[in-house]
Computed example of a mutant assay.
Amino acid sequence: MHWVLPYGSFLSAMAGMPIRVLTARIAVDAEGQVVTTETNWLVASLLDPAEGTTLTLMGLRHQRWEIEKAFRELKSPLL
């Protein structure tokens, strides 16, 4: 069963644990023109939207992805 929350998220359960699923449409643009639009989902344990908005959590996800990418690039020459 799902409970819809504001701003493109809803509550659900995975393996018996409550989760919040966030949905965001992200537009990638090049020089002011939209090249592609894609839908991204994020599963979070923060159930209360006041603890983290969809925009905030998706931004943090992007930052984490950038950091992990930088670490991978550092590891390659070191190995």
Rank of each mutant, 00 (worst) to 15 (best):
M1D: 11
H2Y: 08
L5S: 03
L5Q: 15
P6D: 14
G8T: 06
S9A: 15
S9C: 14
L11V: 00
A13G: 00
A13Y: 09
M14D: 14
M14W: 07
A15V: 06
G16F: 08
I19S: 01
V21T: 03
L22G: 04
L22P: 06
A24G: 04
A24V: 12
R25S: 14
R25K: 14
R25I: 13
I26Y: 05
I26L: 14
A27L: 09
D29R: 10
D29M: 07
A30W: 13
E31S: 13
E31P: 02
E31W: 11
G32R: 02
V34H: 09
V35Q: 11
V35A: 04
T36S: 11
T36D: 10
T37F: 02
E38V: 09
L42K: 01
V43L: 07
A44L: 03
L47H: 05
P49D: 01
E51A: 12
E51G: 11
E51T: 06
E51L: 14
E51F: 09
G52K: 01
G52H: 03
L55G: 01
T56M: 06
T56D: 10
M58T: 02
G59L: 01
L60G: 11
R61V: 02
H62T: 03
H62F: 05
Q63V: 09
R64V: 06
R64A: 12
W65I: 03
W65N: 04
W65A: 10
E66D: 10
E66V: 06
K69V: 01
A70Q: 15
F71P: 00
R72L: 12
L74D: 06
K75P: 02
K75E: 14
K75M: 06
S76M: 11
P77K: 07
